[in-house]
Amino acid sequence: MDIAILGAGCSGASLAYFLADAGFLGRIHLFDRRTDFSQEQRWCSWGPVPKRLSGLVSASWDRWRIVSGNAEVVCSLPERPYLHVHAPEFYERMHDRLRRHPNVRLHLGCSVESVTPTGLRGEIRRVAADFGDYDVDLVFDGRPSAENMEATRGSGEISLLQSFAGLVVESSEAAFDPDTVTLMDFGAGDSPELSFVYVLPFSAHRALVESTAFSGDGIAYDEHERRVENYLKKLGAGAYTVESRESGCIPMTTRKLPRMSDERHIMIGAAGGATRPSSGYAFVHILRQSETLAGSLMRGEHTWRRPIPRKYGLLDAVFLDALEDSPAHARESFLRMFGRVPTGALVRFLSGDSSLCDDLAVVAALDKTPFVAAAARRVKASMLGAEERR
């Protein structure tokens, strides 16, 4: 069996790696129109990551905090630390391993124009690329597309954008706590959208300081950078040098993304629904999906599971609805969750591997009024959507 993987980003590279590492006997064609993967800077999530990739973790923290005005919640869970993976190093090491594997063909700087059925019974997929045509048995597609990834409204769906921009700085003053990640500092909470500052401290003098906002249209880069500069002044960072800048925009939507174009053309990664709608976290979900797919192929199975369990769909939809309706309540909800839910239960919930007891603990900690109203709107939207599909 030969396969093609479209996109050599996190999902495509990790799937190719897991297959090659497991001794997959067929050819693996990995395509990407890019040759430079330095634009992505980092991925963060709670552990663990698969043991075979643990060497790619470049930093970890046992403590994290949420701040809103004068209120602060600090959590700790040493057995599941918050992990940082430097994306350029991930790509360099992954692509280098794949180049040296005899079964892998790495086609960088090569665009794929089309994927079409061929063969006597249409059981083969022909991948038409810049460097020629390739006939394979299965296609795994991790390319983001306008159709799949745009944040659209319709049929009662919720669509927000998580826009962010950050600076990696070296400060003259010891402004950062190197042992504690600031997941969210809402400040005075006076902006109309839900916005906060996120801090990854690499030392007392060096950190990523990032402005993030959840809104319908996103926030301009200049405004994000202004907020970062003001936050550094608030911390008393003193003079600082900027090592690098990064920015991006992640769709947060209840819209269901297609899991496959057909039974032999499967969507993976963010394009296949591996981004958690309520948080934007994707890294661990992508790795789990890649490892699961590789295991299925090695067993000769063609069963493609959801990258994020179905139960989180309703929970995330209710949260996004409440977030869109009342950003002020959302700030309070984050404080309540991190302050009242046992840390292990909350981390499992945010990581997508929670039990029913964990889920109930999270629900019990939330302010019922906005979330009951949001749940009612979600049920109504679901019923209207069902009527439209008839």
Rank of each mutant, 00 (worst) to 15 (best):
residue 20 A to S: 13
residue 167 L to Q: 09
residue 68 S to E: 14
residue 247 S to H: 15
residue 285 H to R: 14
residue 289 Q to F: 06
residue 296 S to C: 13
residue 313 G to M: 10
residue 26 G to N: 06
residue 364 A to H: 10
residue 289 Q to V: 05
residue 48 P to N: 09
residue 189 G to Q: 05
residue 90 F to C: 02
residue 277 P to M: 08
residue 40 E to I: 08
residue 109 G to F: 05
residue 175 A to K: 01
residue 165 A to S: 14
residue 291 E to W: 06
residue 208 L to C: 02
residue 94 M to N: 05
residue 105 R to T: 14
residue 27 R to V: 00
residue 270 A to H: 09
residue 237 A to Q: 04
residue 8 A to R: 02
residue 324 E to C: 02
residue 150 E to K: 15
residue 196 F to I: 07
residue 70 N to I: 01
residue 93 R to M: 07
residue 257 L to A: 13
residue 286 I to W: 09
residue 123 E to V: 09
residue 370 P to N: 10
residue 292 T to D: 13
residue 45 S to Y: 03
residue 24 F to K: 08
residue 246 E to V: 04
residue 354 S to T: 05
residue 232 L to V: 01
residue 270 A to Y: 04
residue 199 V to R: 02
residue 131 F to M: 12
residue 346 L to M: 10
residue 377 R to D: 04
residue 205 H to W: 03
residue 351 S to C: 06
residue 41 Q to E: 13
residue 231 Y to M: 07
residue 22 A to G: 04
residue 247 S to K: 15
residue 162 Q to I: 11
residue 80 R to S: 03
residue 215 S to Y: 07
residue 176 F to R: 01
residue 332 E to W: 03
residue 163 S to E: 04
residue 296 S to Y: 03
residue 341 V to A: 02
residue 280 G to A: 12
residue 157 E to Q: 14
residue 363 V to W: 13
residue 12 G to W: 06
residue 36 D to L: 11
residue 170 E to I: 07
residue 230 N to S: 15
residue 38 S to K: 12
residue 10 C to E: 11
residue 154 G to H: 01
residue 183 L to A: 01
residue 33 R to Q: 15
residue 279 S to Y: 10
residue 127 V to R: 02
residue 106 L to R: 09
residue 217 D to Q: 14
residue 217 D to V: 12
residue 42 R to W: 10
residue 56 L to Q: 03
residue 2 D to I: 09
residue 296 S to G: 12
residue 203 S to C: 02
residue 25 L to Y: 05
residue 307 P to W: 08
residue 140 F to N: 09
residue 231 Y to I: 05
residue 383 M to N: 02
residue 303 T to V: 15
residue 386 A to Y: 11
residue 334 F to I: 11
residue 35 T to G: 14
residue 306 R to P: 01
residue 77 L to M: 09
residue 136 V to R: 05
residue 349 F to G: 01
residue 253 T to P: 02
residue 336 R to M: 10
residue 37 F to K: 03
residue 339 G to V: 05
residue 390 R to D: 12
residue 75 C to F: 00
residue 117 P to C: 11
residue 30 L to G: 01
residue 382 S to T: 12
residue 212 T to E: 04
residue 131 F to L: 14
residue 166 G to W: 00
residue 302 H to T: 14
residue 284 V to H: 13
residue 203 S to L: 01
residue 19 L to C: 05
residue 19 L to G: 00
residue 158 I to T: 13
residue 226 R to T: 09
residue 249 C to K: 14
residue 145 S to I: 07
residue 155 S to W: 08
residue 288 R to P: 06
residue 106 L to C: 07
residue 229 E to S: 13
residue 58 S to W: 00
residue 89 E to Y: 07
residue 212 T to A: 10
residue 202 F to G: 00
residue 173 E to P: 00
residue 192 P to V: 10
residue 73 V to S: 07
residue 230 N to H: 14
residue 316 D to P: 01
residue 192 P to N: 10
residue 5 I to N: 00
residue 59 A to F: 05
residue 204 A to I: 00
residue 16 A to W: 03
residue 9 G to R: 03
residue 178 P to K: 09
residue 311 K to F: 11
residue 224 H to R: 12
residue 81 P to D: 04
residue 198 Y to V: 05
residue 188 A to N: 09
residue 230 N to G: 15
residue 225 E to K: 13
residue 138 L to D: 06
residue 163 S to C: 08
residue 156 G to Q: 00
residue 90 F to K: 02
residue 221 Y to W: 12
residue 49 V to C: 04
residue 330 A to K: 05
residue 115 V to S: 03
residue 294 A to N: 01
